[in-house]
Structures are given as C-alpha cells and as structure tokens.
Simulated assay, not measured.
Amino acid sequence: MEARDNTVLELRGEILGTINQQSSIEEVFQNRTLRPILKLQNDLFVQVFINYAVKQKNVFFSLNPEKKLAYIENVIQRDIKFRNSLKGMVIAFFTLEEYAEYIQNSSNLNKRMMNMLIERLKNQIQLIDITP
C-alpha cells in the first residue's frame, strides 16, 4: 500500500495554504489533504456538476446569476446522493493514514470539504454556465 500512497501524494502535489503551530488539526488536514485534492479534481468536479444540471432538466442554465450561485450551494447541501458522490471523488485520493485521520472527525471534515467545493464551483460559474 505504500506504493499507492506515494503515487497519490505525488499526483496531488504540494500543500496549499498556510500551516503553522496555531493551526487546528482540521485546518492542517484541509491544507495538507483537501485543498490539493480539490485542485487536482477540479476539472472533473466542473464536468460532474454540468452533467448533474443537465440531468435535472437544464433548470440551472435558465437561472439568473444569483440564483445559479444559490442553486450550486443548495444542490450540494441537500442532494445526499450527489454530495456522497462528490465526497467519494475526494476520499479516493486519501492515503491510508489520511483516511484513518478522516474517519476520526469525518463530520467536521465533510463540512469543510463541501464548503470548499461549493466555493470552488461558485468561483468557476463561467465554466459551468455554458449551456450544453
């Protein structure tokens, strides 16, 4: 399993964000693990969201900009199956050690993960806004 962990860490690249002695365990996990994974998987997240929006009868594409932002947040917060799919796309890039750390505090880490993903998608609304 060491080979897999090394490959995963190599794919993800460097730590994103600041880690110092005052950083909480969750903040360290966020910057060491979650941010690099979200960056690595970014293009896939955008395509997955576009596919989701299309399968929901293209409603998203007819909304005004403010409602599009609310739609992104609402869908990720309320559609459990979709949210779990997104979580799986992140967890798949955990090392075994990170997974052990994650399961100790999964509730708070899931909140951080989804909030960062929501913000990431909102910041890329131009890419999502292309009607398929």
Rank of each mutant, 00 (worst) to 15 (best):
Q22N: 08
I15T: 15
L86C: 08
Y102R: 06
K87Y: 04
L40R: 05
T131N: 15
N51C: 07
L127V: 05
R12S: 08
P36F: 08
K67Q: 14
Y102S: 06
E66A: 12
A3R: 14
F60K: 13
L16W: 11
Q104N: 14
T131G: 08
L127T: 06
S106C: 09
L40H: 10
Q41K: 06
V46I: 15
Y71I: 14
V54Q: 13
I19C: 04
V46H: 03
K39C: 01
N31M: 04
F29S: 01
E97R: 05
K68M: 14
P132F: 09
T18I: 06
L63K: 14
A92C: 10
E97L: 05
L63E: 10
M1Y: 15
Q77T: 00
S23R: 05
R112F: 00
N20Q: 02
D79T: 02
S23Y: 04
A3P: 03
N110A: 00
L38A: 01
F45G: 00
M116I: 01
N105T: 07
L86F: 01
N123R: 06
K39H: 09
N110D: 12
G17P: 03
T131P: 10
Q124R: 15
E14W: 04
R35W: 00
S23D: 09
E73D: 13
R78L: 00
N74W: 05
N58R: 15
N105P: 06
L44Q: 11
M114L: 02
V8P: 02
D43A: 05
L117F: 02
M114E: 00
E101F: 11
F93Q: 07
T33L: 00
L40I: 09
F94I: 11
K67A: 09
F61N: 09
K57D: 13
Y52F: 15
K39P: 01
S23E: 11
Q77R: 08
E119C: 04
M1C: 14
Y71E: 13
T33K: 00
D5M: 14
Q47F: 05
I15V: 15
E98S: 07
L40D: 00
I118E: 00
E119L: 10
G17H: 07
K67T: 08
N115K: 04
A100N: 14
L96Q: 12
D43Y: 04
Y52A: 09
K111M: 02
T18L: 08
I50S: 10
Q21V: 04
D5R: 11
M1G: 15
I15G: 09
L121R: 04
L96M: 10
E98N: 03
Y52M: 12
I130E: 13
V90T: 10
